[in-house]
Design a protein around this nucleic acid. Structure first.
Lengths: 118, 118, 118, 118
DNA sequence: GTGGTCTAGACCACA
DNA sequence: GTGGTCTAGACCACT
């Protein structure tokens, strides 16, 4: 995985794991790799792994059993909730900024349609 | 203006000024406030003002007359160029992320339409 | 039983068993469940059970007959001793912290009285 | 300051700073020492300082200006809110445990009174 | 083996 | 100078 230097690595890994949960690569209830394994997988420092899992836990996406491992919350709804939450976040950010630039909702839909054809 | 702690203040001010140019609050050829005034207006550090103007100049949006002030490039096209540039940037970022979450272009248009009605 | 992730599970189980001895759910001389049964009862790892019994024995609350099981010390006094010991521990911890926050003993008594009525 | 080995250092420092806010050693709006200075003051590693401030910010007690420093929220109410919050936390923990040991509220008040005279 | 904490030292962007 | 991030390496307690 290639990291963007602008944003912190741990945030990028968090985002990547979330995407994997949303698109079904990782399932609710699954055990995530150990901190050390995650470090190897993403070529990061184990401390950075800790931070990743700490953040996911803080956001209520995972829980951790001491000495055993970190697990995705075992609730099927989490996938849809995460998906909607992230989509909404993107959507409002996008729409607000476009409106501020002077684009109406119809303008935006046109842009998307045109973009789609390319 | 409220600043987001996540991204650098100078970038947020730059983005805000660009928006003002695009939506017509500031016009091509206009003189921008002095660094000190900008600092007062946005409640930022004067050093940050410098950085803002340096960045705008670097992007070819403004130019500086030494001892007189900073001016927006006096070219009507700049508005459209800026507008398209920023819109494209927002659009590709938005679409890429939505696709990664599993939304098709049609899904997205639906979301926008529904969002519009609320 | 719900475990607090902050403190070690084995300590929480030890505390729970002590409470049961103090409040009479378990009596002096009683045989405690086997390590395996305790593990099932509390949904913990058998290794953790061992640790629980080791700690209880270390504190002089239980003793082990090899091949037979673990028993609570058969001494009626133990209940009172345990009760006082635990109460004292809680009390001094509580009072010290409250004093550090600026509450006098009278303030504290008021708080308890008010709390009682709710 | 002497640290208890049982609980993490960063939590102990957080608790210490909170106490200082509650008892008036630190006031709302005050600038806290820089991470490096805090590290010297408490004889801890600068990274541990970061963690301390991150936790305080997470709890809404401080805010941080990038490149400038960390400040206590400038709201006089925070002192009382913190004080009550911490006291309530201590109180409910204490009362729950004492009740589980078989002490009534009156028993507890007696204990406090007797304790006071020593 | 697992997560949690801590230290040491370094680099960078921000103000 | 300030906070933020990252690496490296170590130790410990828990399971």
């Amino acid at each position: 995985m290639k990291f963007n230097t602008a944003t912190p690595i741990y945030q990028q890994v968090v985002a990547d794991l979330k995407k994997k949960i949303v698109n079904g690569t990782i399932h609710p209830g699954d055990k995530l790799p150990s901190g050390r394994d995650l470090a190897v997988e993403y070529k990061i420092n184990p401390n950075t792994s800790s931070r990743v899992y700490a953040l996911l836990e803080e956001q209520g996406i995972t829980y951790t059993k001491r000495g055993i491992g970190t697990f995705v919350i075992d609730d099927e709804n989490i996938v849809d909730i995460l998906k909607e939450e992230m989509a909404n976040h993107l959507l409002t950010f996008f729409m607000n900024n476009m409106h501020e630039l002077g684009y109406s909702s119809d303008d935006i839909i046109d842009l998307i349609r045109r973009n789609e054809k390319c």
